[in-house]
Design a protein around this nucleic acid. Structure first.
Lengths: 204, 204
DNA sequence: ACTACAATATGACGGTTGACATAGCCAGCG
DNA sequence: CGCTGGCTATGTCAACCGTCATATTGTAGT
């Protein structure tokens, strides 16, 4: 049976990463923050901090794609857009605009491990892995929205472009809301995105 | 006369921050990367690392808002949009998709200085300052685009919303491009944004 | 009851960080 | 010439990091 502490560590890491970023989140603080034993860290995550980060962003990604997939297939593209936005808005408001998106943090930062700076040879490949993971999660969200838009009758290429626009603009807006300590950017972007999608779908 | 090494430090810090994020950029690496003397750091930046970060993002912000302001007032909103996008596209391509936006990095991360963990009392206020600065730069870009859109005859509220959408989506897209090691997301978003603005301006 | 193994606790290690202090350099100018 | 003040060089400091090694505990299987 998979331990409970492992899950708490992953969730705690995702939370801290969304608030402070990847490099500002230390493993010691994760265990401090979650009340989990420090000694278990190398047991549950033999891959070290890198593995914790991977698990955390996969966890965070699934937490979004789950409801998103459910609502889009159930009630269409428009409901999916609203769910996507509402989900982030709630996260922002519930944390007083301290938490953002941990996947975006991975996409913006570069995780560097202390030992053996060496050359950039080994670092590059390992670095790729984290970015690939983040890119995969973004692609996942896009694919869900894109499929829903195609379902509404849009051409494949148009649906893909619009899905990219939605994911990118919401991610950027969440960061802006964090900086502004306000949900206003999200409301403005939400307004425009709804207008755009509505006109594109209905005016077909 | 303001020293040359100071400017090199600021530019180097902005560059490193755009590649690795705020917390992964150490002052020692800035001086290593720019060939500037380590001892001068506390002379040029008595405020320590925080001051370096501030100067770096102000510098990076001006590097965008300069050309942006010039082109929008010269050739209109559409040219401004294209300039904004092209500017980021060039940055991405010239660095093999390693550099993103340092202001976004500040907006996503939380800069934490090692000493005096204390409570969150003192940290909060200081943290605000960096985020306020980042928010101000975003607002600067928005204001330029928004003014250009109003010049094209749009209502003030609509112009503001669209400007927010443009800035947010481009910022998010730049991060996605970094993760994907590809300019494709930017091209897709660019396509949709041009379509949107064109229809909104012409169909007035 | 006793073993075997997963999980937890605790400490140590080598390394880096930001900040600061002290000392040396080197114009420019009286 | 000598001084002076802006830079630069170098070292030290405490704190923290990620990782590993070594107990110690908990617990299920026989």
């Amino acid at each position: 049976m998979t331990s409970n502490t492992r899950a708490k560590m992953v969730a705690g890491a995702a939370d801290l990463m969304s608030r402070r970023g990847v490099n500002a989140t230390s493993m010691r603080e994760v265990v401090r923050h979650t009340g989990t034993p420090r000694g278990s860290i190398s047991h549950h995550f033999p891959g070290g901090k890198r593995q914790l980060i991977e698990d955390a962003i996969v966890f965070a990604g699934a937490q979004v794609s789950g409801p998103l997939r459910h609502l889009t297939t159930e009630r269409g593209a428009m409901a999916g857009l609203r769910a996507f936005i509402t989900l982030w808005k709630r996260t922002l408001e519930q944390t007083n605009y301290q938490a953002g998106c941990p996947i975006l943090a991975v996409a913006v930062e570069e995780y560097v491990s202390d030992p053996s700076d060496k050359d950039t040879g080994g670092g590059q490949a390992v670095q790729r892995h984290l970015l690939d993971l983040a890119q995969g999660i973004f692609a996942d969200w896009q694919q869900i929205l894109s499929a829903a838009l195609k379902q509404e009758g849009l051409a494949a290429s148009r649906a893909r472009r619009l899905a990219t626009l939605v994911v990118a603009s919401v991610e950027g807006t969440v960061a802006m809301c964090r900086a502004a300590r306000s949900a206003q950017p999200l409301e403005e972007v939400s307004h425009e995105l709804e207008l755009l999608l509505k006109s594109v779908i209905e005016g077909r």
